[in-house]
Computed example of a mutant assay.
Amino acid sequence: MSEETKTIMLCCAAGMSTSMLVKRMQEAASQKKVVAKIFACPAAEVSEKLEQENINCILLGPQVRYMLNDIKKKVGDKPIKVDVINMQAYGMMNGEKVLEQGLSLID
Rank of each mutant, 00 (worst) to 15 (best):
M92I: 14
G61N: 02
L10F: 11
L99Q: 03
I85W: 09
D77Y: 10
V46W: 00
C11T: 14
G102T: 00
Q52I: 00
I55D: 07
V35T: 12
L103I: 03
G102V: 01
Y90K: 08
K32S: 12
M20K: 09
K32T: 01
G95N: 08
A36D: 09
M9Q: 03
M9Y: 00
E27W: 03
A40M: 08
Q88P: 05
E96K: 13
E45F: 15
V82P: 04
A40Q: 06
M92D: 14
E51I: 05
M92V: 12
P42E: 04
I38K: 10
D70R: 13
R24G: 11
A43G: 09
F39N: 04
L10P: 04
A40V: 03
K37I: 00
A28S: 14
K97E: 12
T7I: 01
I85Y: 10
A29V: 01
N56I: 00
V34N: 02
M16F: 15
P42V: 07
G91I: 02
C12M: 07
G91S: 09
L60K: 03
K81G: 06
K97P: 02
C11R: 02
E51Q: 14
A36M: 05
M20L: 14
D77Q: 15
N94P: 03
M16Q: 15
Q63I: 15
A36L: 01
M92T: 11
D77R: 12
S47F: 09
Q26Y: 13
K49Y: 09
E27Q: 14
N86E: 12
L59P: 05
M93S: 12
A13P: 05
L10E: 02
K97A: 15
K23Y: 13
S47H: 09
S19Q: 14
E45D: 11
R65Q: 13
T18Q: 10
N86M: 08
E51C: 01
S19L: 10
K37D: 11
P42T: 05
M9T: 04
K73N: 07
N94V: 02
N94R: 10
